Simulated assay, not measured.
Amino acid sequence: MKAYLWFLGALMLFFALPFPCLLYFGTSWPLEAGDRSAPWLALGLLATSLALWLVLLYAFLHYLLLAPPRALQRVRSILADGEPRSARIEQAEQTGVQVRGFAQWRLQLAFDNLSGTPITETLVVVDSKPQLQRFAVGRQLDVLLSRTPGTSPNLMLEGAQPELDRASLWRRAIGGLVGIVAVAAAYAMAYRLQNDGMGWTFLGFGHPLLICPLVLCSYLIGLRLLARLLAGTLQIDARGEALKYRGIGAEARVLDVRQTGTYVNEQPQVEFQLEYLDREGNVQQASVRRFVALLDLANIPRGQVDILYDPDDRRSVRMEHA
């Protein structure tokens, strides 16, 4: 699977970077005087090209360089001011990964969320003290919950010692710096070879300085949309995670079920109209949309379902099973 992802990434980069250059220099080089852009259009294309590269630089900084330190800061805030809970280990298995010689474990924990509703969560930990056999099924662990749940992580083992992979960050920073230098060199080289005393008029709609960042930005948008669809399918977005950790459990009656007409990987999206009694005994109604596998359509619940509702917004509901 990892090899396939590497191959797919390399293929996408080929069509984003070398391929537009090969296509341009194979069909539009050298540039005829009549094919040059008007000065106003050339400046507009130059500004667009620079803006696209800046968008890519922002995405690189936001997702690859600054995200790990932000996550570490969130982990430290949970360890310093988290809500203590006792969690029971329901499942435990080694992932096969070794971290500094210690085995990595995947645990399924059962505990009460911030509202006192029982929930389960999967947590990946490193067993730095294997002699204690802390991760046996049925044992209790002291955990800390984020008091402001949202973007993962929201759960930490008490006494955990988080670390930042500085070597990985340095590699990313060096890679980003090399990319910036390469882009700047591409602009300088293109200007030197193609300006012919007429400035940036060699820029056209098919020039690699515009096509390359445009293709990369389209990849970025596609990945963002895919991530949102998957988050909606698995309920792992920040809003869904916040609701899981602070929502109040209730049993809801299914009023209606219908397909919305949206599909992801041929899986239809289904909307549930629900009615439930909140903690104060008031009748509330809400709607929830879930993607359901085709094989599970016949097993869609029509009677009662377990839900978590937001104590501050009773129409915000998360279905635990569908």
Rank of each mutant, 00 (worst) to 15 (best):
Met1Gly: 11
Ala3Met: 13
Ala3Leu: 15
Phe7Cys: 12
Ala10Glu: 01
Pro20Ser: 01
Pro20Asn: 01
Cys21Arg: 12
Ala33Gly: 09
Leu41Ile: 09
Ala47Glu: 02
Leu50Trp: 10
Leu50Gly: 08
Val55Ala: 10
His62Pro: 03
His62Leu: 07
Val75Gln: 14
Ile78Cys: 04
Gly82Phe: 05
Arg85Gly: 10
Ser86Pro: 08
Ala103Pro: 05
Ala110Met: 12
Asn113Arg: 11
Val143Thr: 02
Ser146Phe: 02
Thr148Arg: 14
Ala160Gly: 13
Asp165Tyr: 08
Ala167Asn: 06
Ala167His: 05
Trp170His: 10
Arg171Met: 05
Gly176Thr: 11
Gly176Pro: 13
Ala182Thr: 07
Ala186Asp: 06
Leu193Trp: 04
Trp200His: 04
Thr201Ile: 00
Phe202His: 04
Gly204Ala: 11
Phe205Ala: 15
Ile211Trp: 04
Gly222Pro: 02
Arg224Ile: 05
Leu226Asp: 15
Gly232Thr: 00
Thr233Ala: 14
Leu234Thr: 08
Ala238Gly: 05
Ala238Met: 02
Arg239Met: 00
Ala242Pro: 02
Leu243Asp: 10
Tyr245Glu: 00
Arg246Thr: 03
Glu251Met: 09
Ala252Thr: 01
Arg258Ser: 13
Thr260Gln: 13
Phe272Ala: 09
Phe272Cys: 10
Asp278Glu: 07
Arg279Pro: 00
Glu280Arg: 14
Gln284Val: 11
Leu294Arg: 15
Leu295Val: 14
Asp296Arg: 15
Ile300Asp: 02
Ser316Asp: 14
